[in-house]
């Protein structure tokens, strides 16, 4: 995972269609983040994940364990 990839992911995510249900949106984003950045999020992190806050996402990804 690199800062560059996080930045790309955030830039690309603006093209996602809006998700009305916050719980579903969090799950969508968690799947995207885990798959693209190779990390594993805790349930607590999944609940708080947001693609609207770059700093929060960078911190979250840095703290999360790697999936492989």
């Amino acid at each position: 995972m690199t800062a560059d990839l996080v930045a790309r992911l955030l830039a690309e995510s603006v093209h996602l269609p809006p998700e009305g249900d916050p719980a579903q949106a969090a799950l969508r984003w968690a799947i995207l983040i885990e798959d693209s950045l190779g990390v594993v999020l805790s349930d607590e992190q999944i609940g708080s994940v947001s693609l609207a806050d770059p700093e929060h996402l960078r911190a979250l990804v840095t703290a999360a364990p790697r999936s492989r």
């Binding site: 690309e12 995510s13 093209h15 996602l16 969508r28 984003w29 799947i31 995207l32 693209s36």
Partner: peptide, 11 residues
């Protein structure tokens, strides 16, 4: 991810 962006197909 450019093909399947999370669960968004043919992104």
């Amino acid at each position: 991810r450019h093909k399947l962006f999370g669960l968004e197909e043919k992104f």
